[in-house]
């Protein structure tokens, strides 16, 4: 598969995600202005941090007058999942030179990870995986930064009663349901335990509930897998799931 074809395929898969990200980008931009960040910082944050959930959390903490240390630890905790994503994607993106891997690492998001894990089973060649990943993640990055810039410029002008920010949980819901539907029984266990734990652990400080729940789900999935018998596939195909084969 040519680079252009892989890129196009990624772009096509990213389109719905791009649509869905616009409201969240707008919300983050508006929030940054409302918290009182100067325009340049409000815009710049989305370009250099590029992590919506952590940005929203940081803005809330800034509004509450939290010290920088708390904001940075929260950023670390909320973004710890990127280490796991990075590990899962590393092998697939190995074909690229170091500078391009750095660019792709910067562009890693929940969405690009989800789309990657959704589709990588279909790309046997490493070069095609890199093209596909860039096709997914570059447009997502572009939409994110553009939407949040628009949010900053619009300020508080968007009608809150449209609840456009609800598009964000709907996106994650879709990705989760699809992962569950395609998954094997340890995947169902992991998804169910993580979800249940997240609901119960939500009152934990610093948004720790998210991390606790994710690790509980992962542990439960592993436990179920070992209980059930042999591992499905060795680590190399870590994110390739049943149903991805062409």
């Amino acid at each position: 598969m040519s680079f252009a074809a892989g890129f196009r395929e990624g772009l096509r898969d990213a389109l719905p995600v791009m649509l869905a990200l616009m409201p969240l980008g707008l919300v983050v931009g508006v929030a940054a202005v409302e918290v009182g960040l100067p325009i340049a910082q409000a815009i710049g944050m989305s370009y250099v941090v590029f992590a919506g959930i952590a940005q929203l959390a940081a803005l809330q903490l800034i509004a509450a007058g939290s010290p920088a240390a708390v904001i940075l630890v929260t950023t670390l905790l909320l973004n710890m999942r990127f280490v796991l994503y990075s590990a899962a994607l590393a092998e697939h993106l190995r074909a690229a030179p170091a500078w391009l891997r750095a660019v792709m690492a910067f562009l890693t998001t929940d969405q690009s990870m989800a789309l990657g894990s959704h589709r990588y089973g279909r790309f046997p060649e490493r070069g095609a995986k890199v093209a596909y990943y860039l096709g997914v993640s570059l447009p997502i990055g572009l939409v994110w930064t553009t939407a949040s810039t628009l949010g900053v410029l619009l300020g508080g002008g968007l009608p809150a009663r449209l609840s456009l920010d609800f598009a964000v949980p709907l996106v994650f819901l879709t990705l989760w349901v699809v992962a569950m539907v395609r998954g094997t029984s340890p995947v169902w266990v992991a998804g169910a335990v993580a979800g249940g734990t997240a609901v119960v652990a939500r009152p934990l400080p610093l948004n720790l509930g998210l991390l606790v729940a994710a690790f509980a789900g992962i542990a439960a999935g592993l436990w179920w897998e070992m209980r059930r018998g042999p591992a499905p596939r060795p680590g190399g195909a870590a994110v390739a799931r049943r149903g991805d084969a062409p």
């Binding site: 989760w176 992962a179 998804g191 979800g195």
Partner: peptide
């Protein structure tokens, strides 16, 4: 490495459920 199989679904569930 084996745990990585469950990272996406667990992280998604942890983000989705409390919402």
């Amino acid at each position: 490495r084996r745990a990585l199989v469950y990272v996406p679904v667990a992280a998604l569930a942890a983000i989705v459920a409390p919402a």
